[in-house]
Design a protein around this nucleic acid. Sequence first.
DNA 1: TCATGACTGATACTGAGTGTCAGACTAGGA
DNA 2: TCCTAGTCTGACACTCAGTATCAGTCATGA
Lengths: 201, 201
Amino acid sequence: MSAAPVGTREIGRHAVRAELARVAFDRFCLTGFNQVTFADLAEAAGVSRSTFLRYFGTKEDVVLFVFDPVGDVITDALAAERPDQDEGDWSRLRDALESAVGFLVRDVQELVTILGLVERTPALCARLREKQAEWRPEIVARLQETTSSTDGSPVVAHVRVAAALEILWIVLGQWSASDGQEDLGQLLDAAFAAFSTPAGR
Amino acid sequence: MSAAPVGTREIGRHAVRAELARVAFDRFCLTGFNQVTFADLAEAAGVSRSTFLRYFGTKEDVVLFVFDPVGDVITDALAAERPDQDEGDWSRLRDALESAVGFLVRDVQELVTILGLVERTPALCARLREKQAEWRPEIVARLQETTSSTDGSPVVAHVRVAAALEILWIVLGQWSASDGQEDLGQLLDAAFAAFSTPAGR
DNA sequence: TCATGACTGATACTGAGTGTCAGACTAGGA
DNA sequence: TCCTAGTCTGACACTCAGTATCAGTCATGA
């Protein structure tokens, strides 16, 4: 799923990439994303601008490449869960999202910092949403192929996946606003309650 | 709500903007969004590059400025509906979305063309999602201030609005794929069914 | 030891978007 | 009618993201 580095070349490349991202991230937090240029980053990292650009296609990717595997994490989680057959879509999506946040939350403080930077930088928000949109079709397919499929329209699955992915960012935003204090499982439950409670009428 | 042109200056500016957008749109459809430069557009429209850039801050806005009022349309619609008090959030959001699509669908063929262009141009998708994210806080506030507020967490309103806005694009995508044939009201119903049907368990 | 292929830095280029400036135009008051 | 203040325009210069090319260097594996 993730770009598992195999071969010495790949390992080295992976390590360099991580180091460049680390240096760059400090700069972004210090000065602000838009204020930092590739020339600045290259100088700070001690490489040429060309080299820096070879490791990251765009400036956004320097920050957001850590989110790349999330799509696969979610699809894999959907495929893996199967012990008790008849779970509803919402329940399955909730669990898949729990896998996703589990993957992301390794260093709490780091993730909080990243989310803060993303939140106050429109360009990063936009690019992240773009990634999210790329994940969607595969997740929808996985959800549909293992669902009871008693639901009428095919759009229903699309809508549910889209809603779930929205929840992911809402919950992460809420969580990072609490500085990583709140419990992510509870936040997910509270968010998914938007669909289970009758909501009037 | 929309930028109502008042004063001769404003009227003129509005008209020029519309004409520039029209010329540009033809080019985009003919050659592809990314292949067309501001220099091309300026030449095609018979103005200087500077002037063109003064009317539209970014290339994306040349296409997407038509969506600008949608946020206000939705908030206004939420505020306006009130005849029978106790409607649920979903029902209210559905009706507000119907106002939004009603606002957008004036020339069917034109909207279908725009949506097609947006769909096959990642940069346009991203910018449109950015606009959507800007609308959200206000819509959430409006929904909350006129809701029965029996729901527990404040995130619930956020989630419902986010989900509804996702539905907007999913439904419009579906609709434009059918070349504007399908009924938008029915599509909205089908999409919102994702929340009303129990979804297993 | 050598050949292949990858990595690097240098350089040049396109195009988006910003800022400034001087001149032309126009609305609106005297 | 004339004047003035504010607006619109084209021209120009600039920064920076992102693409592409090329020659030199270095590690790997035969």
